[in-house]
Nucleic acid binder design. Structure first.
Lengths: 233, 233
DNA sequence: CAACCTTGCGTTATCGATAATAAGGATGTT
DNA sequence: AACATCCTTATTATCGATAACGCAAGGTTG
């Protein structure tokens, strides 16, 4: 037991609390299927099919598909159809570099604006990750992991950049999960966030920067650090 | 008439040729209004209003708004409404840095895959820019400018990254246009692309990299080069 | 045989109407 | 005066039906 289930009401925009919208529920469900690979890359999705399968109208499916398109998880071709996006190593590496740039180059802003509420939220998400790891739920762990990094970036107050980070995060995780052995050390993934919270709590940007940089660059193993070329930590 | 009008059939995905879709026409129109500032930041947009104004149904407006949301030009709040996105200097600077990372760090791939068709398309777009500059049409110039950089990036063959570049480009231009004096030297903007084409035609990556880097970093004047901090050209 | 038209099919795009949601103001209660 | 509750209103969300599109297969014409 040790770790008790966390109060979900304190979790921020992790899931934008509007599960009341059917299109959003559908979006979340399809997102999970795609990230986990249950819907394989290139698989065709048709709106009326999904509508029947999920007992809702075509418009609702459309809305969900457009949200997935926005994250780059599906590709919509006008009048032709929708298919699940590919999952290439080259794209994954490029997206990881972009993520590194986004998260690291705005750290000064994050540290300058860190408040207690942020630290509390991050600790809550850390616990959520621990619980997911204990339950061996790799996907749920990735959900909270994304929520953690998004919440951190929220402090930078760059609303127009947030969607880019969102896209990078989901594709990082998709690539990682699709290559991962069945059950890797999930607790370890959760615990990797501890030093980040500590450095942030101490407002120690000099310590935080290399920690976060390393954290990001070692998420996926791209072999002989291709992603490190020319990246200043 | 020195410069003749170019054959638009040779222009690539500049405007995805489906102007037959009403939602896309609406998207293009609203995009222009927002980038030019005719629709001011924070202005509220309601779906039924737009539907009446453009003589189409609410669903069509919805689709257009979702496409704008995807580019970050509007912000949609579930059940609450839609408003034009803000236009902050901080966001603009961050997006410019991301754009720099995206375009420059993939140059090796671009050069390795450059074919004659690419060079032909880029020269066509250069001519289109010259025509727009001659006609003092700053917006049209920006449209072709974006098409130029997107076409260049297309050669990198990183389809999951392209939407990120699209978003950066549109926001770069939006920020630039909203701060520009009435009629700056538009021809100059067009001509700035000439050395890029030449270096690319010579497959000279060593020459191309600093050219493109400088090209990007000097698009908007952010004062004492804030954007250059820690950016390796 | 090649180029061109036609038609059928799978799919998305658009429409108009109705339901659901959230916010703020009015109302009544302590 | 403070507070909860109910209503009104502005807006999006969802529905079901129909129109439009793009492609491919097959037929037609020179």
């Amino acid at each position: 037991m040790a770790i008790e289930s966390i109060d979900t009401s304190s979790i921020p925009t992790m899931v934008p609390r509007q599960s009341s919208r059917r299109s959003h529920a559908l979006f979340v469900a399809l997102q999970k299927d795609i990230v986990l690979g249950d819907l394989a890359p290139e698989k065709a999705l048709t709106e009326l099919d999904l509508a029947q399968r999920f007992q809702c109208s075509q418009s609702t499916v459309r809305e969900a598909l457009m949200q997935l398109h926005e994250e780059g998880l599906v590709i919509r071709q006008p009048n032709r159809g929708t298919h699940v996006a590919p999952c290439n190593a080259d794209d994954a590496a490029a997206l990881l570099r972009i993520r590194h740039e986004v998260e690291c180059s705005t750290l000064d802003r994050v540290v300058a604006r860190t408040q207690d509420a942020l630290l509390a939220d991050l600790r809550g998400l850390l616990n959520a990750m621990r619980n997911a790891a204990r339950d061996a739920d790799e996907y749920l762990l990735s959900v909270y992991d994304r929520a953690f990094h998004l919440r951190l970036f929220e402090a930078a107050d760059l609303p127009l950049v947030t969607p880019i980070l969102t896209r990078c995060l989901i594709h990082n995780h998709r690539y990682k999960i699709q290559r991962s052995q069945p059950n890797r050390a999930l607790d370890e993934t959760a615990e990797r966030h501890v030093p980040i919270i500590e450095a942030l709590a101490a407002r120690d940007e000099a310590a935080l920067r290399p920690l976060l940089s390393h954290h990001i660059l070692t998420i996926v193993d791209f072999g002989p650090d291709l992603t490190l070329q020319g990246v200043s930590t």
